[in-house]
Simulated assay, not measured.
Amino acid sequence: MRNFLFDFDSTLADTRNVAVTSTQAAYRLQGLTVPSRDAVVSYMGVPIEVSFAKMADRSMSDAELQALYTVFREQYHLAETNGITLFAGMGEALTGLKAKGDHIFVVSSKHSVPLQRNLEQIGLGDTFAAISGSDSVAHYKPAPDGILNLLERFNLAAADSVMIGDAIYDMQMGKNAGVATAAAMWGAADPVAVRAEQPTYILKTPLDLLQI
């Protein structure tokens, strides 16, 4: 592989606790039934524009959903300062890939602004050739838009490209884009479901990236 496309949450960095506590706080502040930790984790990997309505205990208007998104982003911003950490070995893996001349990107369900802010927070602000957030695509994961946009923009061959992620949505996105897939098992909340997607590669640690 020459082109490595990374998910962010639970793949590059451990953000699970921040995501769960921020989501639960947003629902509570908006007077909604607070979703369980398991429910929040199960939807990690897809944008809040998809998951939040599904976790609500009643139908919500567009205005109510927009307010919920805003409160969530405020809560996330408050919690992220000390709650996001780079997975052990990931820094060395990224350095090794770049040393080999490989191209590395981020394809995330986050909006680009908080995504870039989080990358800077963990010391990766200038590491990637480009990032693709949920605000830069017409269709969210598992649609292939984020990958296809980068392949076209940088004239990359799909046969030399791999999508790395911790969730089934990342594996499905990679398949839909016609690229290889690599399961980041160090961050997978549901390893059985991820393996069931039959990824091209099963990675136990970030340093395994240097072998594919």
Rank of each mutant, 00 (worst) to 15 (best):
A188L: 00
M173F: 09
V50P: 01
A93P: 00
V194Y: 02
G96T: 03
T181L: 01
G89D: 08
K98V: 14
P144Y: 04
Q66Y: 14
L156P: 06
H111R: 14
D62Q: 15
G133N: 04
T127P: 08
L148N: 04
K110T: 08
G101Y: 05
D166N: 05
F52A: 05
D126A: 15
N149E: 10
V107A: 10
L151H: 08
S136Y: 15
G178E: 13
M90P: 00
H139I: 11
D145Q: 07
Y140Q: 13
L151F: 09
M60H: 02
G165I: 01
L78K: 12
D170S: 10
F105E: 03
G146K: 04
Q75E: 15
G101P: 03
G96F: 10
L65S: 08
S109N: 12
L151G: 06
V162P: 05
A56N: 06
G83K: 07
D102W: 13
H139D: 08
Y140D: 13
P114A: 03
A130R: 04
V71N: 07
A67W: 09
L151K: 08
I168Y: 06
G101V: 02
Q66T: 14
M55N: 12
D160A: 10
D57L: 11
M185R: 02
P114Y: 00
G125W: 13
N176C: 08
E120S: 15
F154L: 08
A63Y: 11
P144T: 08
D126T: 14
I131Y: 03
I168G: 03
T181R: 00
S51M: 10
T85S: 14
S132Y: 05
L68D: 00
Q121A: 14
R58A: 11
G178M: 10
S161E: 07
V137F: 02
Y69P: 05
K175W: 08
L94E: 00
T181G: 00
M60A: 05
L124T: 02
F72G: 02
G133C: 06
N82G: 15
F52S: 03
P144N: 06
T81Y: 14
G178T: 11
A193I: 04
I131A: 05
G96L: 07
A130C: 03
A56D: 04
G125A: 09
P114V: 01
